[in-house]
Design a protein around this nucleic acid. Structure first.
Length: 489
RNA sequence: GGUCCCAUCGUCUAGUGGCCUAGGACGUCGGCUUUUCAUGCCGAAGAUCAGGGGUUCGAAUCCCCUUGGGACCGCCA
């Protein structure tokens, strides 16, 4: 392509970094990197009422966590700044003045109440809700009179009926009848500009080549094309991605669904690699059977032409599977790094730093069982603390008896006590041999010992536990179990 | 109500006129490995390709209609 590829995501900091925004960011990022272009982050914070700094921070942190680093924007700067719209207000004002002067826009003195009423009437009459254009016909005199009276006004852009074709990268040519739109506001009565307007100006000024965003903006694209005409701007190439929904086909909402990248995914123990990989599959596929991709692989494999048109449903189950898959394929050292952030118990944390080798061993023993990082602590705490209270009956293996469980403990204590080199292999040989010699099934002795060691229904295997726990601790726990089981008939 | 978009297993998807008696993945179920739970491996069930009309020798694939779902129609983005 002759022109430079420049794409952007333009979130407004009115809420936590949303999973849908994250996927849009991913697609933009991939498109930019694939085409050796620039990925830009612009914060659309002109809505002072609802914008908050904490949300900007949340977005920035989330993007960084995912590894979707931007080439221009907050923190990194760039030649097309500022990248916060709040700092660009002067720019918009100039264009507004120009539009007003050229009679392409006008001051509207209608109050919100009047507009609400108008809309309600249209709805009642089964008319499409659309601004009547009442203030468009105001005379100069009337305008001045209103202004003198101190009446607040918004500024509306004049829409002439015409047919607008959005040539969409994903959907092809989509035609809209602009006559149905009505004059839309570009500046609020408090003087701040609106998204649909600032978007067009900034995209032009920042020389954005492709505007790639969610499908909910498709109709906005038509309006923005008209706006660009009025401003004598070139249009970017548009592309609108299909939306992501819940299993019940409802929109994923902040209120009831896990949509916050930081709160619901990062802090819950999901890996950025897994989330990224899962998200890219929502709407995109390579055309092959391959589904596992690193961000790096994606940059070369991703093709925007292969993004589908139909909306998809977010499947937490598959994400969970994929997260487990990535965890299983981590080097234990990397797993340790990630897991530490999820361990609350200071004792375990301190022990992990003091004896990193031991910590790694414990992690390796549970690695295949993990689906999320926040499951690490409950799974490895048994290595740092003896089992508390578990029902004594659990010591009895399936299809066995209390009597035989007692015997198993006795036999195991004896066999294990004789071992000098306490390893996986040596404990296995000893336990199996003693089971055979004492007329116990392997399962009877191994299950009982494992429960004595862990107090859990599910855990790593007996020999592995024995090896990691070591001889003294293992024997202590078996002894405890022996005392415990005396009460059982 | 209007405009626009979308439509293949429960879910994500492959499929661009014959290779499709529709492929893969998650999930589900069964088996093997086995001391539990996982992992791993093997296998099964699961889609009259929303429905109906065309076009064609031939359609999941092209056209039309119907139905269903969704988005938008804000001084939110």
């Amino acid at each position: 392509m002759a022109e430079d590829i420049r794409v952007r995501i333009a979130p407004s900091p009115t809420g936590k970094f949303h999973i849908g925004t994250a996927r849009t960011a991913l697609f933009n990022y991939l498109f930019a990197k694939k085409n050796e272009g620039k990925f830009i982050l612009r914060i659309e914070d002109t809505d002072r009422e609802r914008s908050e700094e904490v949300y900007t921070k949340d977005i920035v942190e989330g993007l960084k966590w995912l590894g979707l680093n931007w080439d221009e924007g907050p923190e990194v700067g760039g030649a097309y700044g500022p990248y916060f719209q709040q700092e660009r207000l002067g720019i918009y004002e100039e264009y507004t003045e120009q539009l007003l002067e050229e009679k392409k826009a006008y001051k509207c003195f209608c109050t919100p109440e009047e507009l609400d009423k108008e809309r309600a009437e249209q709805q009642a009459n089964h008319q499409p809700p659309k601004y009547s254009g009442k203030c468009r016909g105001l005379t100069q005199e009337q305008i001045e009179q209103n202004e003198r009276a101190g009446k607040p006004y918004a500024i509306r852009f004049i829409i002439e009926p015409q047919s607008i074709v959005v040539d969409d990268l994903i959907r092809g040519k989509v035609e809209f009848d602009a006559g149905l739109f009505g004059d839309f506001p570009i500046v609020r009565s408090d003087g701040t500009p609106l998204f649909i307007y600032t978007n067009v100006i900034d995209d032009r000024l920042m020389e954005i080549s492709h505007v790639l965003r969610g499908e909910e903006h498709l109709a906005n694209a038509a309006k923005q094309i008209i706006l660009a005409q009025g401003l004598n701007f070139l249009n970017p190439q548009f592309g609108h991605f299909p939306l992501i929904f819940n299993a019940d086909h409802s929109k994923m909402s902040k209120r009831k669904d896990p949509v916050s990248v930081n709160d619901d995914y990062r802090q819950k123990g999901f890996l950025p690699e897994a989330l990224l990989n899962y998200m890219v599959l929502l709407g995109w596929s390579s055309g092959t059977d391959r589904e596992i991709y690193s961000l790096h692989d994606l940059i070369s494999e991703f093709q925007i032409e292969r993004v589908g048109k139909s909306p998809s449903i977010f499947d937490p189950e598959k994400l969970l599977w994929m997260n487990g898959y990535y965890i299983r394929n981590y080097q234990v050292g990397d797993l340790a790094e990630g897991a530490k952030g999820f361990i609350k118990d200071p004792k375990i944390l301190a022990a992990a730093d003091k004896e990193p080798e031991f910590f790694l061993q414990t992690l390796a023993s549970v690695q295949d069982r993990l689906k999320k990082l926040d499951e690490v602590e409950p799974m490895i705490e048994l290595f740092y603390e003896p089992p508390k209270d578990y029902p004594v009956s659990m010591l009895v293996a399936k299809k066995s008896t209390a009597e035989r469980a007692k015997k198993a403990l006795q036999v195991a204590a004896k066999a294990l006590g004789d071992i000098k080199d306490f390893s996986y292999d040596s404990t296995e040989i000893a336990l199996r041999a003693s089971a055979k010699a004492n007329d116990l099934k392997d399962g009877e002795i191994l299950w009982t010992v494992r429960v004595a060691l862990t107090g859990k229904e599910a855990s790593p295997g007996t020999f592995e536990l024995l090896e990691i726990l070591g001889k003294p601790e293992s024997l202590r726990r078996i002894e405890t179990a022996q005392r415990k089981i005396k009460s059982l008939k």
